[in-house]
Amino acid sequence: MEFFSFGNIIVYIDKFIKFINSIFFVILIIGISFALIISPVDYLQGDSVRIMYVHVPSAWIGLSIFSLIAVSTILNFIFKIKNLFLLIKSLAPIGLLFTCLSIVTGSIWGKPTWGTWWAWDARLTSMLVLMLFYVLFIISLKYFKNNENLTKILSILSILGIINIPIIKYSVEWWSTLHQPASIKFLGTSSIHPSMLIPLFLMLLVLLLYCALIFLMKYKTEIIKIKKQNIKRL
């Protein structure tokens, strides 16, 4: 448990921030070059397919962060682990940003593909619901100072929000939607060519590194806030 002390964590945070800073721009340039220049044009959608390289990773990140937050909130409710609470607080704004980006870039992609910016389609609506859960989460974190009440509210939001995750995932199969079914399957054969998969995973790596960087900076800020409150006791 000593390993997870704030002292040890902050040392590793500094090391990780330095490491990410040293490789980030190289990977960003490679990712952007693949996404905008090297990857081929889609036979049906033309160059508009390049929007996929920011839209799909944003959606994956938005969904993954909410799942992580929901599990952490429930674990925090049961075991009262302070580090988990800081993790939730640091991750929520990142998840909200990527959910919003996925909705906005999806809407931009929708215009040339479907002929409309927005449709109350099952996938789009369930993503909008996810965004609302993020907003409620962040508002609760900001305005509820009582820890006991906050933990309860966050747990309720997590349980309700986690129900929405499989709805988002399977909405394209359960309902007739404008949104296409998943082209990338982790269990099974993907219907996307490697020449498009490589840029997609490179852009995912770029955005994951960015998320890690923001998360580490936010986590460090939270640790400093706690230490600042306790400075008199040192």
Binding site: L36, V41, G46, D47, S48, R50, I51, V54, H55, S58, L101, V104, T105, I108, W109, K111, P112
Partner: peptide, 16 residues
């Protein structure tokens, strides 16, 4: 121009 889709592609990347 991106084959006529430049506005949509650049706007998406710019927003992100």
């Amino acid at each position: 121009k991106m084959g006529g889709y430049g506005f949509y592609v650049w706007l998406s990347f710019l927003i992100v």
